[in-house]
């Protein structure tokens, strides 16, 4: 009996533990309200203003976003295609760069722990720098246009993809590696014939997934002069040409939907 009485506290301790987590989260939310000017009245008033912004006022019905103005529609589509091209090259360059780096950043294939740590930290930095920030840097370095945009996407995506590839390498079946090693194959051949075939599904699906998000990211890079449709987002908004802005946004949305759909279809087929 006494033993049974001693056992239960463990369960009670766990309950206190989860309660502590809830308390901690509440405290975090409370802390996050200071300085962020959260305000329900302001939000309600804003909704009314947004209605006017979207559909125009009674005096000036064409000042809103609707109906969209597609007079420059072909230009927008053309710029959207340029944006997709930027995403294609940004992703492909990243995938090519990520593969060798991922070998160094995977615990089971890195030559030693120092190289592994250095590779991992470099990837942390690449992922830590947002595409937008990188685009600002590359615009300053190589000038305006889509090229700095491609570089920005490529650098950030390399950090993301190399980490995902490395994680796929870390969980490969070692039996297959041992068999290829036993045949006398050298380390490069072990990678190409035992490790790479195993990570192909991850490489393909993650690269396509990153391509989708790169299309979304690329469509705002024009804001900092790094080419593509983003330029027209700022141009139309700053000149209060809201009906054209809504046409631009529709082009972006349709393109993103299409890319997501096609890419998801390919991913489903390949994996």
């Amino acid at each position: 009996m006494t033993k049974q009485l001693q056992a239960p506290p463990k369960v009670l301790m766990q309950r206190n533990y989860t309660r502590l987590i809830w308390l901690g989260m509440a405290a975090l939310l409370f802390w996050a309200t200071f300085g962020t000017e959260l305000s329900i009245p302001k939000f309600i008033a804003g909704v009314g203003e947004s209605y006017k912004l979207l559909f125009g006022t009674a005096e000036r019905p064409d000042s809103g976003f609707f109906p969209p103005d597609f007079t420059r529609g072909l230009t927008f589509v053309d710029q959207m295609l340029l944006t997709v091209k930027m995403a294609i090259w940004g992703t492909v360059l990243a995938a090519i760069a990520a593969l060798p780096i991922s070998i160094l950043a995977a615990a089971n294939t890195a030559p030693n722990k120092v190289v592994y740590q250095i590779a991992r930290r470099i990837l942390d930095v690449l992922r830590g720098l947002n595409e937008f920030v990188l685009a600002l840097i590359f615009v300053a370095a190589v000038g305006l246009g889509p090229f700095p945009g491609i570089l920005a996407l490529a650098v950030h995506t390399t950090g993301v993809l190399a980490k995902l590839y490395a994680e796929a390498i870390e969980v490969v079946d070692t039996g297959q590696i041992e068999a290829v090693q036993a045949s006398g194959a050298n380390p490069i051949q072990v990678f190409t014939h035992a490790i790479f075939p195993q990570i192909v599904p991850t490489v393909v699906s993650m690269s396509l997934y990153r391509f989708e998000s790169n299309v979304r990211a690329a469509s705002v890079l024009g804001l900092v002069g790094a080419g593509g449709i983003g330029l027209f987002v700022t141009e139309t908004m700053r000149s209060f040409n809201f009906r054209e802005a809504s046409a631009v946004l529709i082009v972006i949305l349709v393109a993103v939907f299409l890319v997501d759909f096609i890419s998801a279809q390919i991913r489903a087929k390949l994996t």
Binding site: Q176, A179, V180, G184, Q189, P197
Partner: peptide, 24 residues
């Protein structure tokens, strides 16, 4: 070498697996 769990590279064809014996 022949293994208990065969250790074929699963995503390659039978022929490609045999060609692994020629890698070296």
């Amino acid at each position: 070498m022949v293994f208990q769990q065969f250790n074929l590279v699963k995503r390659l064809t039978a022929l490609e697996n045999v060609l692994i014996g020629r890698l070296a």
